[in-house]
Simulated scan of single mutants.
Amino acid sequence: MNTHPRRIRITTPITADLLRGALDLEHTEHGILPHRLPARARAQCADPQLAMVESQPSGVRLVFRTRATAVELDTLPTKRLYVGAPPRPDGVYDLLVDGTLAGQGSVSGGRVQVVDMSAGTMELRPGPVGTLRFTGLPEREKVVEIWLPHTETTELVALRTDAPLAAAPDHGRKVWLHHGSSISHGSDAASPTAIWPALAAALAGVELVNLGLGGSALLDPFTARAVRDTPADLISLKLGINVVNTDLMRLRAFGPAVRGFLDTVRDGHPATPLLVVSPILCPMHEDTPGPTAMDLSALGEGRLAFTAAGDPAERASGKLTLNVIRDELSRIVAQRAAEDPHLHYLDGRALYGEADSAELPLPDGLHPDAAAHRRIGERFAGLAFADDGAFAFAGSGGDR
């Protein structure tokens, strides 16, 4: 990629037909803000954590056909700064040409969301619009994708090229809608196409809609309705870890909440292949309930890490651990599958288990690193999209 700027004269309005992976587009004073939950869902919850993560465009990308050799994108990012922790690097934009990674870049400046996890507060500091620039692209008709930073809220201000562009066809690829936690959102992945759902989608040759919501996969009814109302050929729900993190409910509430979530999804997708995935291995919460707390000793060393703050003895009173949740999810799916042949279950430890934890431990105790994201994505593609998998024969010529 040539990083020298060149004159770019054609400005194209950013419209819904150029964007994939977003469920709603908000018109702001600066431009377009992609959302991964619809406005009706957002209006039903005042949680600032949910507001932050659903506006982070994990899996959202601009897709267009063009002969342009140069592309510029003005954006207003919102970056995160955790009090007491080292500054986070700027979010990464991935540029793909005909499905192959051809460049990466970042946008400096922008707003800063200051998060004090100890105090439970957030403060938004203003900042300027920045410009992402890619030049030296092949001078031929091609499909260009710009994947937005998966953990950086991104308002799209202007799109410029040195040749006309148009929306790209989807070639009839099946749509896979995935809902999960921060791991599905992409925490600690290297870039937006390196989060495990994006890797799995590329391997299987399907279109991804990613509803991985960091800290917010909490069986909320409005999320279930968002899944229900979104067109999809394949659906997966990775459930459990956030319920433990937040210490949100006990076993008595968890089972009916899962059943209600599945009922709502089935109202809109009665026969769609539906895969329930339990949590990957997380040693600190396998048999110790939540809540999850910051590791203050690590914070004193300038590291962000987490610890389990619950008491294993509290399992007797219904507090949830990952092993309890896996047993309950497996039981619920087995019961329902007798009348729902398109419902399937996958133990998350098949994606990342004991041997993986020994080789690729979770750096902060909770989230996989870039290498583990790749492993999880490859394993999910190999299991879910296998000839005998939940999504058998769903792909359309990926690399598997």
Rank of each mutant, 00 (worst) to 15 (best):
Leu329Asp: 03
Pro197Ile: 09
Asp74Thr: 11
Met294Lys: 08
Pro126Ile: 07
Ala217Val: 04
Gly389Val: 04
Leu76Pro: 10
Pro283Tyr: 15
Thr307Lys: 11
Leu239Asp: 00
Ala355Pro: 00
Pro48Ala: 04
Leu274His: 02
Thr288Asn: 12
Trp196Met: 06
Thr100Glu: 15
Asn242Leu: 14
Asp94Ala: 06
Gly105Leu: 09
Glu301Leu: 10
Gly59Glu: 06
Ala168Gly: 02
Val53Phe: 12
Ser297Glu: 15
Met284Arg: 10
Val53Gln: 08
Asn245Ser: 10
Arg6Thr: 14
Ala224Trp: 14
Ala293Gly: 11
Ser55Arg: 08
Asn245Lys: 05
Gln56Asp: 02
Phe64His: 06
Ala119Leu: 12
Arg42Pro: 00
Ile376Ser: 02
Glu155Asp: 01
Lys142Thr: 05
Ile195Lys: 00
Gly105Trp: 03
Gly398Pro: 10
Ala167Gln: 01
Arg9Thr: 13
Ile32Trp: 11
Ile195His: 00
Val206Asn: 06
Gln49Glu: 10
Ile195Gln: 11
Met1Cys: 02
Asp90Ser: 12
Gly348Lys: 05
Thr69Cys: 07
Ser184Arg: 07
Pro231Val: 01
Thr78Gln: 08
Ala394Trp: 10
Leu33His: 15
Val112Gly: 13
Ala201Met: 13
Leu320Ile: 03
Gly290Asn: 08
Val276Leu: 14
Asp90His: 11
Leu274Lys: 03
Ser182Val: 03
Arg259Asn: 04
Gly302Trp: 14
Gly214Ala: 13
Leu37Trp: 00
Ser191Gln: 01
Val175Thr: 15
Gly318Met: 08
Ala384Thr: 11
Arg303Gln: 12
Ala381Gln: 11
Ala384Gln: 15
Ala200Val: 02
Leu148Tyr: 03
Ala201Arg: 00
Glu207Lys: 11
Leu213Ala: 08
Asp399Met: 09
Val114Arg: 11
Glu286Pro: 03
Thr12Gln: 07
Leu96Lys: 06
His171Tyr: 10
Gly348Ile: 11
Ser182Phe: 07
Ser330Val: 08
Glu328Ser: 07
Thr161Asn: 03
Leu203Thr: 06
